[in-house]
């Protein structure tokens, strides 16, 4: 067979495979990610409001930081106890898009490579899943900062 015939065959096979491959039930998984994601955000808002009630003098920024730190810690604890992934199997994007998903990705990698030791395992692989988020976040936010500096100058 020449290359064209192979390509043609592969294309047809690909089409056939996507016709017979079962797909995720769209509305159900959408609804699951909606309510699990929404609920996570509500819990975040709840933590924020509680800390605001308890410490009215704290600034908005500090309260926000406390909220995300609390959520992160809880998510990591859930990961350690081994049921974050059970929630995530149902929640899909509802559990990886919130900051809790970031925490889960980091701690699961950290735990997984514990067997290679705390230095070469855990410490090396800690960012193996969340690396893209941290790297892209820093690069593009720096770009945003520089653009603002050029456009609007120093305060």
């Amino acid at each position: 067979m020449n290359n064209n015939a192979v390509e043609e065959r592969n294309k047809r096979y690909g089409k056939y495979v996507s016709a017979v491959t079962p797909t995720t039930s769209f509305w159900k998984s959408l609804w699951n990610s909606f309510w699990i994601g929404g609920l996570t955000c509500c819990i975040g808002q709840g933590i924020f409001d509680l800390f605001k009630l308890a410490f009215p003098s704290l600034s908005q920024d500090i309260l926000g930081n406390i909220t995300s730190m609390t959520l992160i810690t809880v998510a990591i604890l859930f990961t350690g106890l081994g049921f974050y992934d059970v929630i995530a199997r149902r929640g899909g994007a509802g559990s990886f898009l919130p900051i809790t998903g970031f925490a889960n990705a980091m701690s699961s990698a950290s735990m997984e490579f514990k067997t290679e030791g705390l230095i070469f395992g855990t410490s090396v692989k800690l960012f193996s899943v969340v690396g893209p988020v941290v790297v892209n976040g820093i690069v593009w936010s720096t770009v945003a900062g520089l653009i603002h500096l050029i456009l609007f100058g120093r305060v």
Partner: peptide, 10 residues
């Protein structure tokens, strides 16, 4: 990683 929460396709 084992404890990483991700959905598998059907």
């Amino acid at each position: 990683p084992l404890e990483y929460g991700c959905q598998r396709p059907p």
